[in-house]
C-alpha cells in the first residue's frame, strides 16, 4: 500500500477534536502540576519530619519510574479502591502528579536560592515567617522557575500522548481510531505529529513571551 494524503481532509474533524482534547488535558494537568509543585515544594522544605519523609518516598518513586507505569497504577489502582473515574480524569491526575513532582524539585531549588536578605527585609517589616514566605519568597521563586517549568510543560504536552494508552480520546487515540477505519497509519500518525509540533511551537512562543514579561520583575 502506497501513501495517500488526500484522505486526511475527510477525517480532519476527528483529528481537530483530538487536538482540542490534547490541549485541554495538557492545560488542566499543567495547572494541577503547578499548584501541586508549589505545595510539594513547601512540604518538602518546611513540613515536620514525619510528613516530609513519606512524602520524599513518594517523590522518589515518581521520579524513578516511567510515567506510563504510573498512569496504569492510577487508572487501575483507583478502580481497585473503588474510585471509578473517567479515563481522562485519571489521565489528568496522573500527568499532573508526575509533573508536580518535577516542578517541585525546581521550585525547591528556587526557594533556597532566593537571597536571604529578602526574608530578613520582610521580617524587619514585621511579617511572620509564613507571611514572608507567601508574599516575598515564594513569588520570587516562582518567577525564577518559570523558564524551566515552561520546559516541563512542553514535555507534558508530548507526554499527554501516553494517556491514549488508558483510553483517553485525545489526539493520539483519535489518530488510532481513524487508522482503524482507514488502515493508513503513516498518514494519520504523521498528521498527529504535525499537530503536536504546531502546539509545541505555540507553547515555545508563549514561553518566550512570558519570560520577557517577567524578566523585568526579577
Amino acid at each position: 500500500m502506497g501513501l495517500g494524503f488526500t484522505i486526511i481532509p475527510k477525517y480532519l474533524d476527528v483529528i481537530l477534536l483530538g487536538c482540542a482534547w490534547t490541549i485541554g488535558i495538557t492545560l488542566a494537568a499543567a495547572i494541577l502540576s503547578f499548584i501541586g509543585g508549589i505545595l510539594f515544594a513547601v512540604i518538602a522544605l518546611y513540613a515536620p519530619w514525619l510528613i516530609r519523609q513519606p512524602f520524599r518516598l513518594i517523590e522518589w518513586l515518581f521520579m524513578g519510574t516511567p510515567l506510563l507505569l504510573q498512569l496504569f497504577l492510577i487508572y487501575f489502582g483507583l478502580v481497585q479502591i473503588g474510585i471509578d473515574l473517567p479515563a481522562f480524569v485519571a489521565g489528568i491526575i496522573g500527568l499532573g502528579l508526575h509533573f508536580a513532582v518535577y516542578n517541585s524539585e525546581l521550585i525547591q531549588t528556587a526557594i533556597l536560592s532566593v537571597d536571604k536578605g529578602q526574608m530578613e527585609a520582610a521580617r524587619t517589616l514585621g511579617l511572620s515567617r509564613t507571611e514572608a514566605l507567601r508574599k516575598v519568597v515564594v513569588p520570587q521563586a516562582v518567577r525564577a522557575v518559570i523558564p524551566p517549568i515552561g520546559n516541563n510543560m512542553i514535555a507534558l504536552l508530548k507526554d499527554s500522548a501516553l494517556v491514549s494508552v488508558i483510553g483517553v480520546s485525545e489526539l493520539t487515540l483519535s489518530a488510532q481510531r481513524v487508522i482503524g477505519r482507514t488502515y493508513r497509519p503513516f498518514e494519520f500518525y504523521l498528521m498527529a505529529a504535525a499537530c503536536y509540533y504546531v502546539i509545541n511551537l505555540a507553547m515555545e512562543w508563549l514561553q518566550r513571551k512570558i519570560e520577557r514579561r517577567i524578566s523585568i520583575s526579577r
Binding site: G2, L3, K158, P185, F186, Y189, A193, Y196, Y197, N200
Partner: peptide, 18 residues
C-alpha cells in the same frame, strides 16, 4: 517537538507503507 510515542507508531505501524 513531537511525542516519542507517535514517533514509535509512525515507525512501527507506518513503516511497512514505505
Amino acid at each position: 517537538g513531537t511525542p516519542a510515542l507517535i514517533q514509535l507508531f509512525i515507525l512501527y505501524f507506518g513503516g511497512p507503507q514505505i
